[in-house]
Design a protein around this nucleic acid. Structure first.
Lengths: 208, 208
DNA sequence: TACTGTGAACCTATTCACAGCA
DNA sequence: TGCTGTGAATAGGTTCACAGTA
């Protein structure tokens, strides 16, 4: 089996989702290659790296493989609840309050925060909203592990510092700010502008 | 100089942003290391890979370096306009209509689309909204290069196929669907759920 | 002195090639 | 036969080490 490389982890997260989209009962590495562009040998290597050996000459059983991928990556386990919060309830943050986005996943938004008390009073959601001053106490009380960060750029680093201090494990960063983090907090940068810049860098600018 | 590796590109995109956040006039690779966690030698290597040689024994001139990084990656050039569109005007897509998100960047949202004609009629924005049937004609007429995809999951692949067919260069994918793409279209996957799963995979699940 | 710039060394990730198996 | 599983080979990325420089 061995260890799972970082690039493998990202591919396997997508593979788990891809398998969920499959209606066929079996799938081969060549078929996954056609759907993703990853080479067939790389796919087999990734699957081998999680110790799964259920493949036959007609490929893998889709749901069996998905199960194995999820177990190896610690994702998609319905019996696990991972409490999350949203910090920043502007237009983007408010859009994510729609918790149908997270339904069917192990992630549960259990709190929202905003430095602006008005917003936490006006907005409606299925979970409680708090002023940012209560960040530390609520995160500890609710055992929140991940934060979706949608504050305005100027507040981002300061909030991130407070999140790191109170033991958050990871941040999904929708701001443009490059966050400096301590305590092993991991970040996924998913701001629309950063994503567009990554596209530009990868495609060589796409000038017309 | 040589070629810029893919991981380097991602770091350099963030570095450009980080330099923008800096108020000091000069910065060393050791200081960047403290802010990002990337090793100082890796940072120097990245900078060397774009052919920049402006470093001295007190580090780099921040704005000079930023300029060089942007030029090498084809990002942040104010004289270039890269036309983009948003497809899917649900809660999340509508939140991105706020084009202050993109102000100060070279990306300009010039059109919004939704399969649901109602939404394109009700919503207000500074740029025109169209029914999805006009996707191909508007993308060609407006020279749109990138798409921000915020449709519901079930429509995502079908829309992506149409985008690839009409020559879009890249997609910022806010859906959970793993898109299959042709014509060299590149994708950045930034769905909140995928981002959270990446956090889980990297942190080993963060169970409490 | 305190840094950068850069080849060489090392380590990681991907592809190759083929034995093994239903 | 048509696939997987996997060690070996190759390619790619990161770190090391140190010469060069203001």
């Amino acid at each position: 089996m061995g260890t799972i490389s970082e690039p493998s982890k990202k591919r396997l997260v997508l593979l788990a989702q891809l398998l969920l989209q499959q209606n066929n009962g079996r799938i081969t590495s060549a078929a996954i290659n056609r759907l993703t562009g990853w080479s067939d040998s790389l796919i087999r290597h990734d699957i081998s790296s999680i110790g799964f050996k259920g493949g036959f000459s007609n490929g893998y059983n889709v749901s069996e493989l998905r199960e194995a991928v999820c177990t190896a990556l610690h994702i998609g386990d319905q019996d696990t609840r991972l409490n999350c919060c949203i910090v920043g309830l502007g237009r983007l943050g408010a859009a994510l309050l729609d918790d149908s986005i997270f339904s069917g996943t192990e992630y549960e938004i259990v709190a929202g925060f905003d430095p602006n008390v008005n917003r936490t009073e006006i907005l409606r959601s299925t979970f409680p909203l708090y002023p940012a001053s209560r960040l530390e106490s609520v995160i500890q009380a609710e055992h929140i592990v991940y934060t979706i960060l949608t504050v305005v750029d100027k507040d981002a680093q300061q909030i991130a510092d407070r999140l790191a201090d109170c033991g958050i494990r990871g941040i999904v960063n929708y701001t443009n700010v490059v966050l400096s983090l301590t305590n092993g907090v991991v970040v996924e940068n998913v701001s629309p502008v950063t994503a567009l810049k990554n596209l530009s860098a990868r495609t060589g600018g796409s000038r017309i």
